[in-house]
Design a protein around this nucleic acid. Structure first.
Lengths: 204, 204
DNA sequence: ACCTGAACACCGTTCAAGT
DNA sequence: ACCTGAACACCGTTCAAGT
């Protein structure tokens, strides 16, 4: 990759993010980003080797913004983990269409690494060792990733829930009734309700 | 959509699944599936209106195979839920590349609806009502979806973990050490360890 | 009426041609 | 040396033309 000339990686990622926020992840293309920047399509290849690298830049741009400062140490460790998870969720919620990219490129993101480092410090302080610590970190990540995708692609407040509540009660009685109740569950109650359960379970 | 002539939806989905299993999700295209079936590309449009409908058929084909019979009622409810989650995981693990499609199209899959119906019956019997029941079902789904994607795209046994364990210990000491321990954690221990935690938390 | 191949508007990426 | 537009091999989908 030759030296960039006039654009920073952040400007490039911001342009891609603008395309994604406007046209969705499906609208992301080298041509669209180039047009957004007012340059030729091939000009992008001065900054990235391939489209995948552009995606990595987007992920880094989004996740690099997450606050990874250790939360106030006087709070119980469970609350501190919750604070960290809330920060990650807030960061990703600003660009929900990016979540699938995040899953694929999370490895190379310094933001996620710093976030994980802070979470691990809290877990270690709370006495998590060996496999138990590994499982705790991975299950927290799995929950956040899964819950955000569920919330983005099929929110409880959306028409998927309405459709389920209209299913034939003879065939899906529990689903129909539960879906009716689900319409009154807010996105925050859903997310933090599940997180609280996971946290309780990790603690015992 | 005109009447299908010689192919069933299942044959169509199987051909698409064969393409995905061979070339990955990125290899799925109308042209590739048509070639797999030895027909013209446009012939597919006799069976589906658009590519998205083909994807729905694939999801239904995979998830339709999940065993949704209620587990033995003499087992504790927690164990029965775990059995149901294990079945869903086993079904999806046979075609991990399909998981992202599953997230997007899960609403219309009768397989997922039947699975959820059985899980809800167990939750109701265990005394879950209202929001608590909604949160339990959604968090289980979120965990399964997130954990499977994590396991497929970045397994603990993979080179992502190796790369993390090689990070500069001055900057990421906890990550490096935890990654070294993570290499000895099997995929099953990881998945069911996290699931057990979530289940404990939902129970209290 | 049924089927299909050419065509259109896209895509990522290569590469030669122009400055 | 630097940049770029044409070109190549794809993609989903429309539509006219052929049977």
């Amino acid at each position: 990759m030759p030296r960039p000339r006039s654009l920073t990686h952040d400007q490039l990622a911001s342009a891609a993010l603008a395309v994604i926020d406007r046209d969705g992840l499906a609208g992301l293309s080298m041509r669209a980003v180039a047009k957004e920047l007012g340059m030729s399509t091939m000009g992008l290849y001065r900054y990235v080797d391939e489209r995948e690298e552009l995606e990595r830049l987007v992920v880094e741009c989004v996740l690099g913004a997450v606050d990874t400062e250790p939360p106030p140490p006087e709070a119980p460790w469970g609350e501190r983990i919750e604070i960290m998870v809330r920060r990650l969720r807030d960061t990703l919620s600003a660009h929900p269409a990016v979540v699938p990219l995040t899953v694929a490129h999370r490895h190379r993101s310094p933001g996620v690494l710093r976030w994980s480092e802070t979470v691990l410090a809290i877990l270690i302080e709370a006495g998590f060792e060996g496999e138990r610590r590994v499982v705790a970190l991975r299950s927290l990540l799995a929950y956040v990733i899964g819950a955000l995708q569920l919330a983005h692609l099929g929110p409880l407040s959306g028409d998927g829930t309405v459709a389920i509540s209209a299913l034939r009660p003879t065939e899906f009685p529990h689903m129909a009734e539960t879906a009716r109740q689900a319409r009154n569950v807010g996105a925050d109650d859903e997310f933090f309700g599940g997180l609280a359960a996971l946290m309780r379970g990790l603690n015992t």
